[in-house]
Nucleic acid binder design. Structure first.
Ligand SMILES: [Mn+2]
Ligand SMILES: [Mn+2]
Ligand SMILES: [Zn+2]
Ligand SMILES: [Zn+2]
Lengths: 139, 139
DNA sequence: TCTCTAATTGCAAGTCTATTGCAATTACCA
DNA sequence: TGGTAATTGCAATAGACTTGCAATTAGAGA
């Protein structure tokens, strides 16, 4: 766990507690974004006893300071979270049959963002981009 | 209201009822995607008495046969719906301050979709793309 | 090390969006 | 003009997420 994580938390008036360490730890070791309840289940399996409410609150803090990214996939009905810290901005693809989520280590939106700002006079701060379809196994 | 709407419904074993007509009517006249409860409120204002549950069920039917598009904007916590029938596929931008939603009458993802299919071996069926930022008034 | 305060946490309850069960109503076709 | 399947309303339920509050804990400063 990088030392700047502690600093980032402190800078926002937060502490790096055992709970937050455990949440970051699970997210660091998982290769796809987890929902709050999935994260909760993994913590329990690891014999880390943290209330689901605390998982939600922890994710909110980590997201607000930018250590974690919140991802909402189409029609999933629940948010997912993955480590942002030290990783490149990227997007995802999800299988409509089995639910598998894979990273797309790219972002094709630089030029189109500039174009949209020019056309709409909005200032663009964020975007969401997700693909869905059938994974190799489910075709 | 186009005649093929009735045909599309019938083909899926549904009827074009007064209720569905009213829902489509409101959506046709609105320039941005509406949530179920916003739609419900507008129906009431128009003296059309339809239960909120029926609004949800109607939107599900219309979405499933492709007459209506379901849109989920980042962190909004509720789905929105807009007319798809007879309109071009497009995307949206939302103001983080006032919530204003504007159409982006474009889709920049043809090439990148082909690239992703080649790289991941997924078959891509859908994508979501939304931008957010500050509208001209809120800057 | 001790103390004090603010941050953190757990538990219970609440909120909000959306769904489901079921009986009553309605549309449509034979 | 029935008969039947689709539609609708109302009540209850589900599920994700949030809030209130009191108890606990972290850690800065004495
Ligand atoms: Mn990822
Ligand atoms: Mn639109
Ligand atoms: Zn991107
Ligand atoms: Zn598109």
């Amino acid at each position: 766990m990088h030392s700047t994580i502690n600093e980032d938390l402190r800078a926002a008036g937060h502490r790096l507690t055992r709970t937050r360490r455990a949440v970051l730890d699970v997210l660091e070791r998982t290769k796809y974004p987890l929902s709050a309840s999935e994260l909760y289940q993994r913590l329990q399996r690891n014999k880390v006893s943290i209330d689901l409410v605390t998982v939600y609150r922890t994710l909110t803090v980590l997201r607000d300071i930018g250590l974690v990214a919140q991802i909402e996939l189409h029609q999933e009905g629940q948010a997912r979270f993955e480590i942002q810290h030290g990783r490149e901005h990227h997007h995802h693809i999800r299988c409509q049959t089995c639910g598998k989520i894979a990273d797309l280590l790219l972002c094709p939106l630089k030029k189109i963002t500039a174009f949209i700002e020019k056309e709409t006079k909005f200032i663009v701060n964020e975007h969401t981009l997700e693909f869905s379809g059938l994974c190799p196994k489910c075709q």
